[in-house]
Design a protein around this nucleic acid. Sequence first.
DNA 1: TAGATTGTTAATCGATTAACAATC
DNA 2: TAGATTGTTAATCGATTAACAATC
Lengths: 214, 214
Amino acid sequence: MDDKNISQAVISRLPRYLRYLGELKDSNIERISSQELSELMNVTASQIRQDFNNFGGFGQQGYGYKVNYLYDEIAKILGLNKTHHLIIVGAGNLGQALANYMNFERRGFHFTGIFDSNEKLYGKKIRDMYVQPMEELEHFVKENDIDIAVLTIPKGAAVKIAEQLVSYGVKAYWNFAHIDLKVPKDIVVENVHLSDSLMRLTYTITRNESEKEN
Amino acid sequence: MDDKNISQAVISRLPRYLRYLGELKDSNIERISSQELSELMNVTASQIRQDFNNFGGFGQQGYGYKVNYLYDEIAKILGLNKTHHLIIVGAGNLGQALANYMNFERRGFHFTGIFDSNEKLYGKKIRDMYVQPMEELEHFVKENDIDIAVLTIPKGAAVKIAEQLVSYGVKAYWNFAHIDLKVPKDIVVENVHLSDSLMRLTYTITRNESEKEN
DNA sequence: TAGATTGTTAATCGATTAACAATC
DNA sequence: TAGATTGTTAATCGATTAACAATC
């Protein structure tokens, strides 16, 4: 598993492989060839083999891939063999939605704290956490060995809070705020820009409609 | 604005351009060169010019780009000059979060209905809508000229409901369920796979940590 | 052993970057 | 007009696909 320089394109495909392999596992299918998987997933068999071989050989010539083994290896590559401790900053609808999504917990993502600047929310119980004021962030983060901060706050606040959290030692951010965070380069940010996604949808809608006219 | 075969890579960058141009507008900046924009956005000036020229010339030699004009043109390309009527299927935390996010409304996305299969939620007021039972979908969709269905329901339900909605004539789906919907090819699906995103984050965290060890 | 399918190299395709002529 | 910067062509780089030898 020596990841020299794996391209973003490959990495982006890994979770999708994992999802399909999970479904195969659930169906008690033991082996699969790149050909079969390619038909299922609508990609080329060549790409599948290339992708996997970025991380070493997971298959067996003449046989294919063992579903369980491949699943576990990809999970490992994605870091899902470790547990991660998260805090949610912003206890609005979106923060609560993420907190309550049980599938994350099953994958080893432990939500350990939730914070908001709105004092009306202080003490509100969300799943098994109580909303805490932002002033508690520093103490909490340092005490609880937090890996990931989930930012579900408006963009202005996100910039400010991210800067603070970086100084408290939080290295990874799942950012839902509609802005590009400026952080030192050993810090990881994964953006979920929902409005960008919605605009891609309307782009395609618009293009489809104008095609019909022609 | 003749979009022959614009690559996905280009389209994916458009919303980000729009965001930066919006900020420039807000700062009352009237003109910008591809060079200046490239520094701001951390991409090459060449890419910016290539991207824009996919849709025709928006700039002026020797001068640069007029921020307002460029902003409007990109908004148009993305289909933001039209209003879109959406329904939300799934009135859980995530559905509610999206319904309440005001910025969508400002962009011309009108949430006109919200549905759930849980009868305890029927009639619950979310923003200015009342949660309706799934049985109302067909009637509502046909009456209200719905462009986009937002699917914030579990994957099993999503597959079933999407199939129904397709038959009712809904052409575009913003899918938050953790599954790839199988739909006819004139139907548009934009996926938001949150767990994929979170896994990309843990991949990078893991890689960063193991790099440090070496 | 023969058949199947991987792992891997080579060929192709597409996207990004560089360069520069056109022109405001 | 001279300077600046686009629009666009050409060069480079990287990712995907095809092909096939290795091997289970």
